[in-house]
Simulated scan of single mutants.
Amino acid sequence: MGCLSELGSRIYLHIPLVCGFIKTTWIPMREYRLNEFHGFDSLTLTETPTPDPGPSQVLVKVHAVSLQHRDLAVAKGRYPKAVQPGIVPMSDMAGEIVAVGSEVTNFSVGDRICANFAMPGFPLGDLGAAIDGVLAEFKLFDADPQRLVKFPDHLTYREASTLPCAGLTAYAALYGPVPVKSGDVVLIQGTSGVSIFVLQFALAAGATVIVTSSSDDKLKLAEKLGAHHGINYVATPNWDEEVMKITDGNGANIVIDIGGASSLIRSVKACASGGWIQLVGVIEKAQADLNSLPLLAIVKNVCLQGILMGGADRFRQMNERIDSVKMRPYIDPKEFTFEEAADAFRYMDGRSHVGKVVIQVSKD
């Protein structure tokens, strides 16, 4: 005889087999797939049997996922590497382990985890591009400590879902070879997920923070979150000169550059002598004359560093810091359900958000 049990809102059936193992038959779960890459209307909600974990695997109930620009690029067919049709998109999630394989000893049912998607050999991440991602109600993972990272107890699933990319990128930008410290000046471009995380980490370290944006409303929100100065780069095109005024001619010790070629010259000009330019994005595609960059970098004695998130060890270091100050990641107030996933993609693509855009997957 089999027996019925309930897991969350789903019912499953245990069937004893002659060999002594147990097979679990599930009501189908839902997941999104991208069969084409023509935009957000290509997101297709499908049903599939909820899988059983193998001996060295865990089954995770996905509670929340957060969007990043990489997800938009994949859906639009603009990702720099080939993506197979039919892939489950997205990479950033937080969830709960609900079943473990027979050989798993390092994770337990009830553990709250994020998936680290910057695995060895995949500096740009594998989930949602090279392999199926996390825009699903349940997800199988290998019980690999390089893949699964427990998050601080004080965070909600929604908050924790923002950590794998934006949080870890911001942390890597501020805690590299010369970590941010009290009294530093940090210049942040924009108010996206990474930028707001930088703001929160920098404030926790005791730094003075300057934020640039094209929106006065976004600058007001950044200042409400603790930013000391805001510069509207549309009203003040020479924002590097404004930074120098604010800092009495000294410049920023750390500049977070997300624009790429279109902003890099001004980033160097706004940087303090011996400071750091942390290159975390290439948002703008505008052509720019970078002929003066080498001489400017020499004169300012600046260090330019490209930022990749790093692996699970850095993820755990970041979580320790978040836990020590009980930091809570800022999430854009507009909420999206699992059924509204395409709307969440469109909303982020419209760039009216501040902080991270999150999709609530689980209703409980």
Rank of each mutant, 00 (worst) to 15 (best):
Arg147Ala: 11
Arg147Glu: 12
Arg147Asp: 13
Leu148Ile: 14
Leu148His: 10
Leu148Cys: 05
Val149Cys: 01
Val149Ala: 01
Val149Pro: 01
Lys150Ser: 10
Phe151Tyr: 07
Pro152Cys: 13
His154Lys: 02
Leu155Glu: 07
Thr156Arg: 14
Tyr157Trp: 13
Arg158Met: 09
Arg158Phe: 13
Glu159Leu: 13
Ala160Asp: 02
Ala160Phe: 09
Pro164Arg: 04
Pro164His: 10
Cys165Leu: 02
Gly167Ser: 09
Leu168Thr: 11
Thr169Val: 00
Ala170Met: 06
Ala172Lys: 09
Ala172Gln: 10
Pro177Thr: 11
Pro177Ala: 09
Val178Glu: 03
Val178Ala: 15
Pro179Asp: 15
Pro179Gly: 11
Val180Ala: 11
Ser182Arg: 05
Gly183Ser: 04
Gly183Gln: 00
Gly183Leu: 00
Asp184Trp: 12
Asp184Ser: 12
Asp184Ala: 13
Asp184Leu: 03
Val185Trp: 12
Val186Phe: 13
Leu187Phe: 11
Leu187Met: 15
Leu187Glu: 04
Leu187Ile: 14
Ile188Ser: 06
Ile188Glu: 07
Gly190Ser: 03
Thr191Lys: 04
Ser192Leu: 04
Ser192Arg: 02
Val194Lys: 07
Val194Leu: 14
Phe197Leu: 04
Phe197Tyr: 15
Val198Tyr: 10
Leu199Ala: 04
Leu199Val: 03
Gln200Asp: 00
Phe201Lys: 03
Phe201His: 10
Ala202Arg: 15
Ala202Gly: 10
Ala202His: 08
Leu203Tyr: 12
Ala204Met: 12
Ala204Phe: 03
Gly206Asp: 15
Gly206Cys: 05
Ala207Lys: 15
Ala207Pro: 04
Thr208Ala: 04
Val209Ala: 05
Val209Phe: 12
Val209Trp: 14
Val209Asn: 03
Ile210Asp: 10
Ile210Pro: 12
Val211Glu: 01
Thr212Gly: 09
Ser213Thr: 14
Ser213Val: 08
Ser214Asn: 02
Ser215Asp: 15
Ser215Val: 10
Asp216Val: 11
Lys218Gly: 04
Lys218Phe: 12
Lys218Glu: 02
Leu219Gly: 09
Ala222Lys: 00
Glu223Phe: 01
Glu223Cys: 07
Lys224Ile: 14
Lys224Met: 14
Gly226Trp: 15
Gly226Lys: 13
Ala227Glu: 06
His228Arg: 05
His228Val: 06
His229Tyr: 15
Gly230Ile: 02
Tyr233Pro: 11
Val234Ile: 11
Val234Asn: 15
Ala235Trp: 04
Ala235Lys: 03
Thr236Leu: 10
Pro237Tyr: 00
Asn238Gln: 08
Asn238Lys: 11
Trp239Glu: 01
Trp239Ile: 07
Asp240Tyr: 08
Glu241Phe: 09
Glu241Val: 11
Glu242Pro: 13
Glu242Arg: 07
Met244Phe: 08
Lys245Gln: 10
Ile246Pro: 00
Thr247Gly: 04
Thr247His: 09
Thr247Phe: 15
Asp248Gly: 01
Gly249Ala: 02
Gly249Glu: 06
Gly249Trp: 05
Asn250Val: 10
Asn250Phe: 15
